[in-house]
Simulated assay, not measured.
Amino acid sequence: MRYFIYLSYNGTAYSGWQTQPNAPSVQETIERALSTILQQPTAILGAGRTDAGVHAREMVAHIDLPLDLEEARHLIFRADRLLPKDIALSRIVPVVPEAHARFSAVGRTYRYYVSREKMPFAQDLVLRMYFDLDIERMNEAASLLPHFTDFTSFSKLHTDVKTNICHVQEAYWRRDPETGMLVFTITADRFLRNMVRAIVGTLFQVGKGRMSPEDFSRVIEAEDRSLAGSSAPAHALYLERVDYPEELFLPLD
Rank of each mutant, 00 (worst) to 15 (best):
M181G: 08
G209E: 13
D189S: 13
L192A: 07
M181I: 12
G201A: 09
M195V: 04
N194Q: 12
V183T: 10
T187A: 10
F184G: 04
E214P: 02
F204D: 01
N194V: 00
M211N: 10
T202G: 04
S217A: 15
A198Q: 03
T202Q: 04
R193M: 09
R210G: 13
F191K: 08
M211L: 15
A188Q: 06
V206M: 10
S217E: 15
T202C: 04
F204L: 13
V206Q: 10
S217N: 11
M211Y: 10
G207M: 11
M181F: 14
V206A: 09
T202W: 03
F191A: 09
V196P: 00
R193I: 03
V200L: 05
R190A: 14
S217F: 02
G209Q: 12
M195F: 03
S217W: 02
T202M: 05
K208T: 12
R197L: 02
R193S: 08
M195E: 06
G207N: 10
K208F: 10
A188M: 11
A198K: 05
D189H: 13
D215I: 12
Q205R: 15
P213G: 13
V206C: 11
Q205H: 10
V206G: 09
K208S: 13
V183Y: 04
R193V: 05
I186W: 01
R210K: 15
F184D: 06
T202K: 07
N194C: 01
R218M: 07
T202F: 02
K208R: 15
V183D: 08
I199C: 05
T187N: 09
D189V: 09
L203D: 04
L182V: 14
A188S: 15
L203E: 00
D215F: 13
R190P: 06
A198I: 02
R193P: 02
R197C: 03
R218V: 00
A188I: 11
L192I: 06
V200C: 03
A198R: 03
F216R: 07
I199T: 02
N194I: 01
F216C: 09
I199W: 00
R190K: 14
F216S: 07
S217R: 15
S217V: 03
F184W: 08
S212Y: 12
F184I: 02
I199H: 00
F204W: 08
T187C: 13
T187S: 11
K208E: 15
G201P: 06
T185H: 09
F184H: 02
M195H: 04
Q205F: 04
V183Q: 09
F184E: 03
R197H: 06
T187K: 15
M195D: 05
L182I: 15
V200W: 00
S217T: 00
F184C: 05
T185P: 00
F204V: 14
V196E: 03
Q205Y: 06
A198G: 01
F204M: 10
R197E: 03
A198Y: 01
V200N: 02
F191E: 08
S212N: 12
R218G: 01
N194T: 04
N194D: 08
G201D: 06
P213M: 12
F216P: 05
L192W: 06
D215R: 14
D189A: 10
S212I: 13
T185L: 11
M181V: 06
F204P: 01
M181K: 13
G207E: 11
G207A: 10
M181E: 13
Q205A: 10
Q205M: 14
V200T: 02
R193C: 02
S212D: 11
